[in-house]
Amino acid sequence: MISYSGHYKPLLAVQVTELADAIFIGCTINHAVTDGTSFWNFFNAFAEICRGGKNISKQPDFTRNFFQNSQAILRFPDGTPKVTFDVNAPLKERIFSFSRESILKLKSRANYVAKKHSDNSIELLGKQSNDDWLMEKENNNGNGNGNIVSVLENWLRNAVSRNQESEIVETIDPMAQISSFQSLCAQLWKSVTRARKLPSTKPTTFRMAVNCRHRIEPSVGPLYFGNAIQSIPTVASAGEVLSRDLHWCADLLHRNVLAHDDAKVRQGVENFEKNPRVFPLGNFDGGVITM
């Protein structure tokens, strides 16, 4: 991975703040060097040493041959990678906090599907009202029209009742389980798209970082130290995102993550080796969200 800020900013910075009765340690690492998994493995090892540990219990894995010892040489024009964004553009930061209870509710909503009852009353009414034998029998009893009206009344009553009720069915396929993170992403996708007031036909893109360790064959160990993530885009029009429910958006993200397999990971690496560039962050076309 290439980092623009890594050319002039430290790749690792640690700040220690002395308090009255303790110390506070802050640490940041350039994302081109490590991903979240490697960062926490490093920080836990750092804490273990600070507690007086002689050896690191979980040794980092610096193996680099899981792509069959790629000999690719990244050649940049004029000695620098291609920058595809405005480095002087102002950055805006917003911090949102979600309670554990709120996230659990989102996950519950995302993993439940509203299954509406099918209504065959229209077909039934049509058959009965045009059944010559039934009409003749009812007319002989002197109340043919009354029975047809009764059928219509019952159908209307049942239709209203069924429209007001829905059966909630829980997904039981383990592979269909939508995660808390995907549920939260789906909610953000819907909320941000609504706030942007985009035309219904405007394509929107939600980018998520996925851990590639277990997607590669053979898989990479959890203690691999480095950056083993890729950013994958999920695309839907603004109209689809806003008109569909939370489950639809979360399921779209979930299925895209499941589909990111060994072949797609390797294809992404191959494409980058052929055309290395600085990955553009932000909202360059008005409809992008990056997590």
Rank of each mutant, 00 (worst) to 15 (best):
A45G: 08
F46K: 06
F46E: 05
A47S: 13
E48Q: 15
E48W: 07
E48N: 10
I49Q: 14
I49H: 11
I49V: 15
I49G: 06
C50Q: 03
C50P: 03
G52L: 02
G53M: 05
G53L: 03
K54D: 11
K54N: 10
K54M: 05
K54H: 09
N55T: 13
N55Q: 11
I56L: 14
I56A: 06
I56H: 04
S57R: 13
S57Q: 10
S57I: 14
K58Q: 13
K58E: 12
Q59R: 11
Q59C: 13
P60N: 02
D61I: 10
D61H: 08
D61N: 15
F62A: 04
F62L: 12
F62R: 08
T63E: 10
R64L: 01
N65C: 02
N65A: 05
N65Q: 03
N65K: 00
N65R: 01
F66Q: 05
F67P: 00
Q68C: 03
N69I: 05
N69L: 02
N69R: 02
N69T: 03
S70E: 06
S70Y: 08
S70H: 07
A72R: 01
A72W: 01
A72Q: 06
I73P: 00
L74W: 07
L74H: 07
R75I: 14
R75V: 14
R75F: 01
R75P: 00
F76C: 09
F76N: 12
F76D: 14
F76I: 03
P77G: 11
D78L: 15
G79A: 08
T80M: 12
T80K: 14
T80G: 04
P81L: 04
